[in-house]
């Protein structure tokens, strides 16, 4: 049972390593450095993939921008450009009205 617990802990650590920000946060706490890790350049998804039409019916496209709490992901995290963030916002708000996307979780 003990071994099983250890293993699960180990796998949890591995999962954490998969997400770069987790590692970065831990390093920051330990060393007290200001910029501990290289931050990758963020690119607007809609510019990069040349998506012109941000439609409220396209839930698959919108879902990554409304994480667990179902709040709209801010630009500083997703890296979306101002124009596309605006369009994204109207699309999400319309989709919410039709109960395609939740307003909040729980």
């Amino acid at each position: 049972m003990n071994g099983g617990g250890k293993r699960s802990f180990g796998s949890g650590g591995g999962g954490g390593r998969g997400k770069p920000a987790h590692g970065a946060a831990a390093a920051q706490g330990k060393d007290g450095q200001r910029r501990p890790m290289f931050r990758r350049r963020k690119v607007c998804k809609f510019c990069a993939e040349k998506i012109d039409d941000i439609n409220y019916k396209d839930t698959k496209l919108l879902m990554p921008f409304v994480p667990e709490r179902a709040k709209i992901l801010p630009r500083r995290i997703s890296g979306t450009c101002a124009m596309h963030q605006r369009k994204l916002r109207t699309a999400i708000m319309r989709a919410r009205q039709l109960a395609l996307i939740p307003y909040t979780a729980e």
């Binding site: 998969g18 997400k19 770069p20 920000a21 987790h22 990758r40 350049r41 963020k42 690119v43 998804k45 990069a48 993939e49 990554p64 994480p67 500083r76 995290i77 997703s78 890296g79």
Partner: peptide, 16 residues
């Protein structure tokens, strides 16, 4: 074509 594993784009795992 843009691959999904290209890592300079937002991939939902990053949390700041």
């Amino acid at each position: 074509e843009i691959d999904d594993d290209r890592d300079d784009r937002f991939d939902m795992t990053e949390v700041e």
